[in-house]
């Protein structure tokens, strides 16, 4: 996982760099929570450009992070998803609380 924080617009971009399943979520979760509590961003962007696979473990991961972000007064969005990841996200209904932004904003 790689992340970058933009202090101008208070946005944390979190790029996941591996497939997301039950095996990998624990490590990703720890790193994400560290970055989120460290910067307390107004907005978190979950960048999926380097993720080729995600199962329902990813849904649990995103819901958990969303609760933390919300608690700290921020919101979240998802960018750069492939078709199969979108299918999992859309089926779970999570896109209603963490929308998929179709085009990445260049900062």
């Amino acid at each position: 996982m790689e992340s970058s924080f933009n202090s101008e617009d208070n946005t944390l971009c979190v790029s996941i760099t591996e497939d997301i399943d039950h095996h990998t979520t624990e490590k990703i979760r720890r790193k994400m929570d560290y970055e989120i509590t460290r910067f307390m961003p107004r907005k978190v962007m979950f960048d999926f450009s380097k993720v080729s696979f995600m199962d329902s473990a990813g849904i649990g991961l995103l819901i958990g992070r969303y609760k933390l972000i919300k608690l700290l007064g921020g919101n979240a969005e998802i960018i750069n998803t492939n078709k199969s990841i979108e299918k999992v996200l859309e089926m779970s209904g999570i896109v209603k609380i963490i929308p998929i932004q179709k085009k990445k904003e260049i900062s």
Partner: peptide, 15 residues
Amino acid sequence: NLERSGMGFTIMESF
């Protein structure tokens, strides 16, 4: 408590 989404069987059934 382990942040499981409860979507496993639903995903199997729809995929």
